Computed example of a mutant assay.
Amino acid sequence: MSAEFEDVVKDLDGKLTQVESVMDIEALRQEVASLEEEAARPDLWDDPAAAQKVTSQLSHKQADLRRVGELRQRLDDLSVLHELAQAEGDPASKNEAEAELTSLTEAIDTLEVRTLLSGEYDPRSAVVNIRAEAGGVDAADFAEMLMRMYLRWAERHNYATEVYDISYAEEAGIKSATFKVGASYAYGTLSVEQGTHRLVRISPFDNQSRRQTSFAHVEVLPEVEEVDHVEISEKDLRIDVYRSSGPGGQSVNTTDSAVRITHQPTGIVVSCQNEKSQLQNKLAAMKVLQAKLLQRKKEEEQAEMDALKDGGSSWGNQMRSYVLHPYQMVKDLRTEHESGNPSAVLEGDIDAFLDAGIRWRKQQETDAA
C-alpha cells in the first residue's frame, strides 16, 4: 500500500510540475508584481475602464498564483504526513493521508483542465440561457431539468447564482430561463455545454406511457465587463413592462415590474422578472442584452469566436443525449464520454462531462492549427 501511495504522489507531483510549466509560474509572478505596481498608482482611477481592466487581471492572476502555491504546499505536506503515519503505524493519520490524497488528485486534475481555458473570455462569469425546443410539454419539462442540473452543479462548487428570468410553460416546465453563474472561469467551463440536448424517456405526460424524445437548447455567454464598450443607443430599444407570472401563467406580482427589452436593429429580445422592482429588472435585462450583443460583435470580428454559438462546424447541433428508457445512459456525442447514472448527472454531477468537453475542444483547436 505504501509503495502504491508513493507512486500516486509521484504521478501527482509530475502532473503539478507540468501545470506549473504550462502556467509559467515565474512569468506569472512577474505579471502580478507589475499589475500590483499599476494598481497602486494614485492616478489609476482617472481612467475607470483601464482601472477596471487592471484590477480584474490582477485579481485573476493572484488567484491562479495562490491556487498553485497552495496545491504545491499541500502535496509537500502530504508526503510528510504519509511518512509519519507509516512510522507511527497510526490508522487515523493513515486515513487522513489517504483522504487528502483523494482530495489533492481531484484538485490537481481540475487545475490541469483549467490550464486549457485560454480564451479571451474564459476567466469570466457565465450567463446561461436555456429554452425548450421540439417535444411539447416534455421539452418544457426537460428545459427545467437542465436548469436545475446547472444550478445544482453551481451549488456543489459553492458558486453564486442569480436567476434573471423564467418563462413558465402552461402545463409543466419552462419555456426558457436565463441565469448567471458568478465564478471565476465559469464561462470557460460551461461554454462546452452550448448546443442542443436530447432527452429520451417514457413521457410522464402521456396517458398511454409512450416513449418521447424532446429537445432543449443551452446558450452560454460571457458576462460583460466595463472594458467591453458595448454601445447601446436608447433609441434602438423598445421596452415593455408587464406583470411577473409564475407556473401556469398565474400572476405573482400586483405591479408591472417585469421588463422585456427588444433591441430593434438586431431583433434580440431579453426579459427579466425575478427582481423586486422594475428598475432592477431593467438593469438585469440590460446585462443580458449586453452579453448577447458582445457575443454577436466578437463573432463578426473573428471567425474563431464561432465557438460562442452552434454555428461552428466543430460543434454541430446535438451535443448530448440523456436516455432514461429503454436503458439508462447519458452520452456526449462529441467526446464519447458517458455515464450510466442519469439521475446523478441531472442532479449536477457533470464535472466529468465538462472536463472531457474542455479537453476535446482544446484538441479540436490544436488539430485545426
Rank of each mutant, 00 (worst) to 15 (best):
G69Q: 02
D76E: 05
E31N: 09
L279K: 10
A177Y: 06
Q290A: 10
G340H: 14
M23Y: 08
S209C: 13
V330D: 06
H197N: 02
N129H: 11
D206H: 01
Q295F: 05
M1R: 14
K298A: 02
K61M: 01
R152K: 14
K53I: 01
S184T: 14
G135Y: 13
A177W: 03
S314Y: 07
V323K: 09
L354M: 12
P91M: 08
S271C: 13
H197E: 05
A352C: 03
Q318G: 07
F5Y: 13
E98T: 05
Y150A: 07
K292D: 07
F353G: 07
K175C: 03
D332I: 03
Y121N: 07
N95E: 15
S34L: 08
L199M: 14
S191R: 15
F215Y: 15
A99E: 15
Q295W: 03
T17E: 13
I25N: 01
L116I: 01
L346K: 13
Q302G: 06
G249M: 06
A303C: 00
G14A: 04
V218G: 07
A85F: 12
I358E: 06
K15I: 02
H229F: 12
A258V: 10
T254L: 11
P123K: 10
L71R: 00
V345Y: 09
P48F: 06
V227S: 12
G311S: 14
E347W: 00
D306N: 15
Q295L: 12
F142G: 07
A97S: 12
A63N: 14
R74Q: 09
E20I: 05
E338N: 12
W360H: 15
W153V: 01
I261P: 03
S271V: 03
S321Y: 05
L116Q: 09
A33I: 09
V192K: 07
Y121S: 07
R198C: 11
F5P: 00
H337D: 04
E133C: 11
L65T: 06
D256Y: 01
G311Y: 02
V200S: 10
R238E: 11
V19H: 02
A369T: 09
S191V: 15
R198D: 12
D310F: 03
V137C: 10
A183V: 10
D240N: 07
E70D: 14
D122N: 06
Q290S: 13
L35I: 04
Q363P: 01
G267I: 09
A169P: 05
T178P: 08
H229L: 13
Y242G: 03
K235F: 00
D47T: 03
E162L: 14
G312R: 05
D240G: 05
Y159H: 15
F215N: 12
D240H: 04
G357F: 04
L324G: 03
R124N: 11
A169R: 01
H60F: 08
M149K: 09
E106R: 12
L44W: 14
N253K: 13
A285H: 02
S214I: 06
E112I: 01
H229E: 15
A154W: 01
S103Q: 10
H217F: 14
R238Y: 00
A50E: 11
V22R: 15
R152S: 13
